[in-house]
Nucleic acid binder design. Structure first.
Lengths: 177, 177
DNA sequence: ACGTCAAATGAACCTCGGTTAATTACACCG
DNA sequence: CGGTGTAATTAACCGAGGTTCATTTGACGT
């Protein structure tokens, strides 16, 4: 019986990243998942017009990977870059899935991770669909203060789905109240 | 070795729904997943101001359930209603997860489902974050034509994240081009 | 203290979608 | 046929956020 922790120790490959280093770019084929040990990464979509939209911030303890890249072997749908000097551990997904085929505990760890991922995305979907930019920003400050204070205004805006200028306006509106 | 198909047959409870019937309401505690056999459901968020935002359409073959409700026993974050007369099969998630604890094949089926769910939500996140309402509408027509033609304008608009009036404007703009 | 560079703020103008309300189109039924 | 109810369209007005560009702030090195 293998635990996830054991799998990480046996099959994981540690990687050191300086601020600004990419783990993969949108369009790359990379079927690994990554566990963030220290530092912080951001996952973002790059549009043709050059604008970038931040999918998620990944502080210590986060696990990330492109679902379609891991599961279908297709190109990654987003890019992954360190916004602080970071240590991550690469986990080859295919190997993880194969190990899970013959390992009940590992399979159930995987179920737990995927379920947690689904839950996070469900929440994000709600925010993007049903909340205004202003509410999303307030929510970000409330839910992830430790992240918000380590991240630039521009990145906070990009995560919220607006421009830095619009975020600045929101902050001003909030002050005067 | 139990397959998912067998689990559905053994533990599934069939339910008949008339158009307009709810399976559960936002705020209910309901830790079941549902497999849609025939017809179509919609999952939607209801805001305090009364506006509703459609999370997803669920035609035949879809599986749906509130992640937080299934995993944490919390209240459902959205409502689930039939928009056509439908047949669904209720799958008690806790029972499914427990069965998976002792059943490798079932656990891996579960991994497959959760992964597919993650993939769908990842795509939706991209659409909501990086695409305009107009592009999301075009995308909906391209990706799910079979769904789009069975659904009211108001529901298509709600899924796209805009009002029926705005959707009407978009359609007009597209015609004149 | 000064210069430099990037981040953040601010202002002017524009576009898209929301809001409200009226109008048209269409299905169903007496 | 006309009547009724619902879905869809249209119009007029408004506000949030985008775009462009200028200004200010702040961190850092000299």
């Amino acid at each position: 019986m293998t635990s996830f922790q054991q799998f990480v120790e046996q099959a994981g490959r540690p990687i050191s990243l300086a601020k600004g280093d990419h783990l993969f770019l949108q369009g790359d084929v990379d079927s690994s998942a990554y566990l963030v040990s220290t530092g912080m990464l951001k996952a973002y979509y790059l549009r043709e017009d050059g604008r970038e939209h931040i999918k998620s911030f990944l502080p210590e303890g986060s696990v990330i990977g492109s679902m379609v890249a891991m599961l279908d072997g297709e190109a990654c749908t987003f890019s992954l870059v360190a916004i602080e000097d970071s240590e991550v551990i690469a986990l080859p997904y295919r190997q993880l899935a194969e190990a899970a085929q013959g390992d009940l505990a590992l399979a159930n760890s995987l179920v737990g991770f995927l379920a947690a991922y689904g839950r996070r995305k469900e929440r994000r979907e709600f925010e993007l669909l049903s909340m205004s930019a202003e509410d999303r920003y307030a929510n970000l400050l409330a839910e992830m203060p430790h992240v918000a204070e380590r991240v630039s205004q521009a990145d906070l805006a990009s995560y919220t789905g607006i421009t830095p200028q619009a975020l600045s306006r929101i902050k001003r509106r909030n002050k005067t109240r």
